[in-house]
């Protein structure tokens, strides 16, 4: 069990990170060539691609598909957009959120922390393109849930 102090610390750190010119984690790229099926944008082996509501492109390792956070995000995408077959997957959250989620999974912060984030997204449910405000309310929820 993570105590709330540590959680706040992590959230602060993330806020700082996000503030520093939104330094992107290595696999985030801008959305270029979206829409056409140019084979050159097909990614490295062992990865899949998602776009965020604010049109950022993320290349994610396949293994993340079994992570509860990504499963929830995909489920939310399905509720939001149905299951369109004509283009890439778009998740109903913004780049900052994905960066945070990916950094959590990457640093292997453990199931408790992931659960907390999951709870915050399932409670908020409405992460949409109007990003920062909702991000903040998510932080609150995240902290409140302990």
């Amino acid at each position: 069990m993570i105590n709330s102090k540590k959680l706040i610390e992590i959230v602060r750190k993330w806020q700082r990170l996000a503030a520093i010119g939104r330094k992107r984690i290595s696999f985030a790229r801008t959305r270029e060539g979206f829409g056409d099926c140019n084979p050159s944008i097909i990614v490295d082996k062992g990865h899949f691609v998602v776009y965020t509501a604010d049109q950022q492109r993320f290349v994610i390792p396949l293994a993340y598909l079994s992570n509860a956070i990504f499963r929830e995000l995909l489920k939310m995408a399905e509720e939001e957009h149905g299951l369109p077959s004509d283009g890439p997957i778009t998740l109903p959250c913004d780049a900052v959120f994905i960066e945070f989620a990916v950094s959590l999974i990457r640093r292997n912060v453990g199931k408790e922390m992931e659960k907390a984030l999951l709870m915050s997204i399932t409670t908020a449910r409405c992460l949409s393109s109007s990003c920062l405000q909702q991000e903040q309310s998510n932080q609150k929820l995240l902290i409140c849930s302990f």
Binding site: I41, K45, G46, H47, V49, S85, G87, P88, I89
Partner: peptide
Amino acid sequence: AAKKREMRYSD
């Protein structure tokens, strides 16, 4: 389908 999702068929 893989192409539209910008990933490899093998993946």
